[in-house]
Simulated scan of single mutants.
Amino acid sequence: MAEPLITLTTDFGYSAPYVSVMKGVIYALCPSARVVDLTHAIAPQNIRQAAYFLATAVPYFPAGTIHVCVVDPGVGTERAALYTQVDGQHLFGPDNGLFTLLWRQAREPPLVRRLTEARFWRPVVSATFHGRDIFAPAAAHLARGVPPEELGPLHPHPVQLAVQPAVCTSTACEGEIQAVDDFGNLITNIPAAQVPQLPSLVTIGSRPPLRLPWVRTYGDAPPGTLVSLFSSDGYFEIALVQGNAARQLQVSPGECVRLTWQPSSL
């Protein structure tokens, strides 16, 4: 690859020097690389949010793209450092469940390796900055043509997040809030393809059931209306038109969601 594409996803924020340092490490080893920031606004240590972000964004990149992903509350501990190949994408990051959703939606079996070859790292490895000292240089070496098998051995049992898959029957669907976006929209893990008809009731956690109007898009209802719709990435979503549903309902990712239909309407 004449101009390899390397993306960065972290929880480092935009004011600290950490992201710039990682870019410097990559460019020093692979000056021809194009380094693209996906986001550095993942909430600190929020592995679940990062997993959703990666599973949504990474598949849109061209095959062969290299992704460095650092949301790493266990940095410096015994947790493994990983390289994984998922449907033609190459990813580096900690073994903490960060790639769970990408692996689960993969079309082909993912390949996972543990990074053990220190010759592809920086000479001195900090206990608190593996993004700079392990993941960025390993990604740059891959971009320069180092074969993945030289990075380390296969890692057959990586850590995966405990994610409750959506389950649908003829009268109900059960899932969970997998993400809250910056608009406060509640994005569930219930795929649109599994929803047989528009729900009569939507129940979040132990709250009272809601009767939400169904819309095709947000502008189909007046401002301030709680609505249900399918998100742009194909999941059942709850939104507050021109408002923040998460704030109004006081809902967080991980809470259970139940969609129900009246038996007589089937």
Rank of each mutant, 00 (worst) to 15 (best):
V146R: 00
S126Y: 12
P208V: 07
T100N: 15
A138H: 02
I66Q: 08
W103S: 09
P191C: 07
P31C: 05
S32I: 00
R79H: 12
G93P: 10
Y52S: 05
P196E: 12
S252P: 03
G74P: 04
P165I: 01
I26T: 03
R114S: 14
Q89I: 00
V215S: 08
V75P: 09
L226K: 00
L154M: 10
Y52P: 13
H157F: 13
L38N: 05
I177T: 08
L198V: 10
V19A: 01
S231W: 10
T7A: 03
A136K: 00
G74I: 07
V215K: 00
L98T: 02
L111D: 14
L142F: 10
V159H: 14
P59A: 06
E174S: 10
V195I: 12
T10A: 14
I187K: 05
L115C: 10
F92T: 06
E3M: 12
I134N: 09
A245Y: 09
Q197C: 11
A192P: 03
V75E: 15
A28S: 14
Y14N: 14
T56K: 15
F183D: 00
D95P: 02
D11Y: 06
L212K: 07
P4N: 01
A127I: 01
G74Q: 11
Y27R: 08
V227T: 04
V125K: 15
C173P: 01
T100S: 15
V202G: 04
W121Y: 14
V202Y: 09
R144M: 13
I177K: 00
T100G: 14
A239W: 04
F120V: 12
P73N: 14
P59W: 12
R216Q: 11
D133C: 04
A55I: 06
Y52K: 04
Y18F: 04
E174M: 09
L102Q: 02
S228Q: 15
T9I: 03
V75S: 02
A172H: 12
T10V: 13
H90Y: 11
A172L: 08
A192Q: 13
D233V: 15
D87M: 08
V257C: 08
R107M: 10
E176P: 09
D87A: 06
Y18N: 12
P263N: 05
P199R: 04
T128W: 12
P148E: 15
R211F: 02
H155C: 12
P62C: 00
P110W: 14
F236L: 06
F61G: 04
T10P: 11
